[in-house]
Design a binder for these strands. Structure first.
Length: 431
RNA sequence: GUGGGUGUAGCUCAGCUGGUUAGAGCGCCAGGUUGUGGCCCUGGAGGUCGUGGGUUCAAAUCCCAUCACUCACCCCA
């Protein structure tokens, strides 16, 4: 269909104006919500030392094993396009010794992430996440905050039908016991499990809980949940997170099979899912990672975070029939008839300098075609400059919705329109 | 990496079992109104039928390959 050169690489896309308007709207709401919750923005590089992700996310995770965009620069360093946002934030926390500042440090980010995967609905190779990290506290109230932030954003956007799922996967003290339990209990019947689970049992036994294979699940029916194995500290913490969620009136369900793919998680893990997404049902996910900072060479500092997918969020909004509040393309269109080019250009630029969005024709079109364009742009007013009137310093100003029009002196047109538009937005604000 | 589906105009798609110059709706441009939008009417531009090969007198249509897109698995936002 198209020349390969006239095409974005697989798994990437251009965001054209129709969509970028939605992006900007959501990004605006996002900035407001983060501000309310006390988070400030951090912008980290788009690539990092490969080792940061290997150590942070975990050598045996799918991301590190087969999904990273890794390259060698001219000096022979191994660099990787960031596949997620937490490790870079933790790196920045250490690099700039933010642990020396008042704790917790609360940061948010938004930007592109890269994973080499087969694209499908809600999944691409370059995608965008926004997320937050709170470093330096183990207060379960912050765990709840990580769920409350995206929920508040969704509420503002009017997105219904999301479900919060939470679980606890314990800590280095209690999780090994559960892993051992799983391996011990399942190994005898390993032959009855699906191929995926046989592999999972070696690599990441907790993953077998998440399997969808029917026959395979019969073997696991009687398995005890990890919640039965939590140490007192983890148990209390999980209970406290739930208490806070109830206090905040955020509905949630406990998903005992929720595990998540990164090695760094401890205690609380959660996902926010939406049915409009197809197979990739999570719009947001996150959890606590009390061991990560130490793992990448820093002090032992507890932390929690979440990340949400921009494209996935927009898919859910689309599925729900959501439309962004869009401003019209131009407030005023200036049309010309006859030899009036200079006057038209003059009026347009004066309007723009006065802060009024103004547009004109650049293709020498007929007046009729210019009116069509004004209509398409949703212009509130159209200024029609005719030869005869212009000679008398006059122009016709037409209110597009009502068709009402009158003659206004050209040199007062900016103020006249300013007044009209201001009156209109006042009325709009009252309604 | 594995499996399924689909590639015809800018967009959404017709084109049956192969048969002249490949169509519709929407969009775009122009005109109907030589100085006035939305509705309506008329006309126009725009297509290597994804690409390459094969079968055939003849291929958008059948066969093969390839590429792209798409959905799903694995995994994740």
């Amino acid at each position: 269909m198209l020349n390969l050169l006239a095409k974005t690489p697989r798994g990437t896309e251009d965001v054209l104006p129709k969509k970028s308007r939605i992006w900007r709207y959501i990004e605006g709401q996002l900035a407001d919500v983060f501000q309310l919750f006390g988070y400030e923005e951090i912008r980290t590089p788009i690539f990092e030392e490969t080792e940061l992700f290997q150590r942070g996310i975990g050598e045996s995770t799918d991301i590190v094993e087969k999904e990273m965009y890794t390259f060698t620069d001219r000096a022979g360093r191994s660099l990787t396009l960031r596949p997620e946002g937490t490790a870079p934030v933790v790196r920045a926390y250490l690099q700039h010794k933010l642990y020396g500042e008042p704790q917790p440090v609360k940061l948010y980010y938004i930007g592109p992430m890269f994973r080499y995967e087969r694209p499908q609905a809600g999944r691409s190779r370059q995608f965008h996440q926004f997320g937050a990290e709170a470093l330096g506290t183990q207060d379960p109230a912050v765990d709840a905050e990580m769920i409350a932030i995206p929920m508040e954003l969704f509420r503002r956007l009017g997105l219904a039908g999301v479900e919060v799922q939470i679980n606890s996967i314990g800590c280095p003290r209690c999780r090994p016991g559960y892993r051992a339990y799983l391996i011990e209990t399942l190994r005898p019947s390993i032959g009855e499990m699906c191929a995926d689970c046989q592999r999972r049992l070696e690599r990441n036994p907790m993953r077998v809980l998440d399997c969808k294979d029917e026959s395979c699940n019969r073997v696991k029916e009687d398995l005890k949940p990890i919640l039965d194995f939590l140490c007192p500290e983890c148990k209390d913490h999980f209970q406290a997170v739930q208490d806070y969620l109830q206090l905040l009136e955020i509905p949630y369900v406990i998903n005992r099979h929720l595990v998540r793919g990164f090695d760094y998680y401890t205690k609380t893990v959660f996902e926010i899912v939406h049915s409009g997404l197809g197979a990739q049902s999570a719009v947001a996910g996150g959890g606590r990672y009390d061991g990560l900072i130490e793992e990448v060479g820093g002090p032992s500092v507890p932390a929690v975070g979440f990340a949400a997918g921009m494209e996935r969020l927009m898919l859910t909004l689309e599925a729900a029939g959501w439309e962004p509040p869009i401003k019209s393309g131009a407030e005023v269109y200036v049309a010309g008839a006859g030899e009036t080019r200079r006057t038209v250009v003059d009026i347009v630029f004066r309007l723009r300098r006065a802060g009024i969005a103004a547009e004109m024709d650049y293709l020498d079109k007929s007046l009729r075609a210019q009116m069509k364009a004004a209509n398409r742009l949703n212009a509130v007013w159209t200024v029609i400059v005719g030869e005869d009137e212009a000679a008398k310093n006059l122009a016709v100003v037409r209110h597009m919705e009502s068709g009402r029009q009158e003659e206004v002196p050209i040199d007062t047109i900016t103020d006249w329109l300013k007044e009209q538009l201001a009156a209109r937005s006042c009325r709009g604000a009252e309604e």
